[in-house]
C-alpha cells in the first residue's frame, strides 16, 4: 500500500515538473495554458491520491480536494483562454501554414 502510494507520488511529481516545463517551453498563450492545465491537473491528482494511500484516514478530505481541483481548474483555464482570445493575444502558427482565425 505504502509502496503504491510512493510510486503514485513520484509520478505526480514528474507530471507537475512537466507542467512547469511545458509552461516555460510552449510558444504562445493558448499552448501554455494547455500544457500547464493538463499536466498539473493529472500531477496533482496522482500526488494527492498517493498521499491518500499512505494515510488512508485522510482519504475523504483528499478526495474532496481532488474533486475541487477537477471542477475549478479547467474552468479557470477556460476563462483565462477566453479573455486572451477576446483581447487578440498572439497565436503561434506552424511555418508554411495559412489558416483563417476561426473556421
Amino acid at each position: 500500500m505504502i509502496i503504491a502510494g510512493n510510486i503514485l507520488m513520484v509520478i505526480g511529481g514528474v507530471f507537475l515538473l512537466l507542467g512547469g516545463f511545458g509552461v516555460l517551453r510552449m510558444p504562445d498563450v493558448f499552448n501554455r495554458i494547455q500544457a500547464g492545465t493538463k499536466a498539473t491537473t493529472l500531477g496533482a491528482f496522482s500526488l494527492i491520491l498517493g498521499v491518500g494511500f499512505v494515510h488512508p484516514q485522510w482519504l475523504l478530505k483528499l478526495i474532496l480536494i481532488i474533486v475541487f481541483i477537477a471542477i475549478t481548474n479547467p474552468v479557470g483555464s477556460s476563462v483565462l483562454a477566453r479573455a486572451a482570445y477576446k483581447k487578440g493575444a498572439y497565436q503561434y502558427k506552424k511555418e508554411g501554414e495559412e489558416r483563417s482565425e476561426v473556421k
Binding site: G20, V23, V29, R32, I33, T40, G43, A44, I69, L80
Partner: peptide, 18 residues
C-alpha cells in the same frame, strides 16, 4: 504579455496546492 504571467501564476498555484 500579462496573460503569460497569469498562466504561470495559475500553474504555480496548482503545484503549490500539491
Amino acid at each position: 504579455s500579462s496573460f503569460d504571467r497569469v498562466v504561470g501564476l495559475d500553474t504555480l498555484n496548482i503545484i503549490i496546492t500539491a
